[in-house]
Simulated assay, not measured.
Amino acid sequence: MKVISMTLAITACCILSAAGCAKFRDSSSLSRLAVSDFIDPEVVNVEVKNYCPETGRTYKDLFVRNLSVHVVRGQLSLDSDKDGVPDFIEEKRGDELNISPYKADSNDDKIGDLLIYLSGIDRFQQSRLRCLDPANSDGSAIEFQDPGLAPSDPPQFLGLRNCEKEQLTHTDPLLFDSDGDGLPDYLELRCGLNARDPNDALLDTDGDGLSNYQECKRHTPIGESNRPQGLQKVEYKYVQEAKVAGGKKCFDFTVSNIPVLNGGSGNLIAFYLIEMDGLNKALLYTAFELLGPGSAGKTFVLEFGPSPEGRFTAK
């Protein structure tokens, strides 16, 4: 578990490619297709126990996300490297964009495949990019050792490096939520939203009665209506319970109906909890668990104690 203190701010700029300003490609380009009913998917549940904000701080929001699974065209799609681009897209456009479903940064240049895909920078233009600052100053990134890769491979990095923010998204390297809309920048990009626009999270792109913010939180596409029964079967369900412990107001959370593929094996569950202090500074807590075989149907519990380790344990 890690905690990062940041001041919220709003920036305005464009995503740049090596050749200039590239149009952001959001997931709505895959929408407007008929949604077929899902067979009930395999799922896991998550419980977050004993979260007690310090005096002067208030709970803002919680996001739990399976980074290994996407809903695309009404179907669950695997994302083996958890980078935000489903395998079938990386396989289809791999030669053109120099991306693959095996590593989040296929050519190890510190520019993740997600941003390469979103900005459409082909393999020839990529040679002009240079990452001179590979740190993650906003502290929101998740790094993990992927057992599917060689032990000598470096940890996989899921987040935005400073150089990516400076060269491609033009968001603030010091802020995990550059536009102040309550969504971490990295999640906004994965959801097909603009991390510099504080208003697009409030829109209802697909007209299903859920804002884009709600869709991102529930991990359903902003461009595919949730009204058909199929997508309702894969919506994450959040329950929050308040209590008093040690004289403090505390919370327990349950997030259920998190779809997994391959029985959960290799699926990466990420956790982002945001709180605010009295000076309008946002603090972000993150945790993750890489699921093992036979995880489907289980509940994973995060104990949020005074010195949280940020790991889930099966119940």
Score class of each variant (00 low, 15 high):
Asp208Pro: 06
Asp206Gly: 10
Thr220Phe: 07
Asp179Val: 03
Leu210Phe: 14
Pro221Gly: 12
Leu174Lys: 13
His219Cys: 07
Tyr213Phe: 15
Glu224Asp: 14
Gly223Ile: 09
Asp204Cys: 10
Pro221His: 09
Gly180Asp: 07
Asp208Arg: 03
Pro173Arg: 01
Pro221Gln: 09
Gly180Phe: 03
Ser178Ile: 00
Arg196Gln: 15
Gln214Pro: 00
Ser225Leu: 03
Cys216Thr: 02
Asp200Thr: 11
Pro198Gly: 15
Lys217Ser: 09
Gly182Trp: 09
Leu210Gln: 12
Glu188Ala: 07
Pro198Thr: 12
Leu189Val: 11
Ser225Phe: 05
Gly207Gln: 12
Leu187Asp: 04
Gly182Asp: 07
Asp208Leu: 09
Asp172Met: 04
Arg190Pro: 00
Ala195Trp: 06
Asp172Leu: 08
Ala201Ile: 12
Lys217Arg: 15
Ser178His: 02
Asn199Glu: 15
Leu174Ala: 13
Ser211Pro: 03
Arg196Tyr: 12
Gly192Ser: 14
Gly207Cys: 04
Cys216Met: 07
Asn199Gly: 04
Leu175Trp: 00
Tyr186Leu: 09
Arg196Thr: 15
Glu224Phe: 01
Asp208Ala: 08
Asn212Thr: 04
Arg196His: 07
Glu224Met: 03
Glu215Pro: 00
Ala195Tyr: 07
Glu215Ser: 11
Ser225Lys: 03
Gln214Phe: 01
Asp206His: 12
Asn194Ala: 11
Asp200Val: 11
Asp200Cys: 10
His219Glu: 11
Leu193Asn: 10
Arg196Val: 10
Ala195Asn: 14
Gly209Arg: 08
Gly209Ala: 08
Ala201Arg: 05
Asp179Arg: 00
Asp177Phe: 05
Arg218Asp: 05
Leu174Gln: 13
Ala201Glu: 11
Thr205Gly: 09
Glu215Ala: 13
Ala201His: 06
Glu224Leu: 04
Leu174Met: 11
Gly209Leu: 08
Asp197Pro: 08
Asn212Leu: 09
Asp204Ala: 13
Glu188Met: 06
Gly182Ser: 03
Lys217Phe: 02
Cys191His: 08
Asn194Met: 08
Arg196Gly: 15
Gln214Leu: 13
Pro173His: 10
Leu175Glu: 10
Asp185Asn: 15
Tyr186Arg: 00
Lys217Leu: 14
Leu202Val: 04
Ala201Phe: 09
Asn212Cys: 08
Asp181Lys: 04
Arg218Tyr: 12
Leu203Phe: 13
Leu202Ile: 01
Leu210Cys: 00
Asp206Gln: 11
Leu193Pro: 08
Ala195Gln: 09
Gly223Asp: 12
Phe176His: 06
Pro173Gln: 05
Asn212Ala: 04
Leu174Cys: 02
Ser225Gln: 03
Asp200Lys: 07
Glu215Met: 01
Ile222Phe: 07
Cys191Met: 13
Cys216Ile: 03
Asp204His: 10
Asp185Leu: 03
Pro184Cys: 06
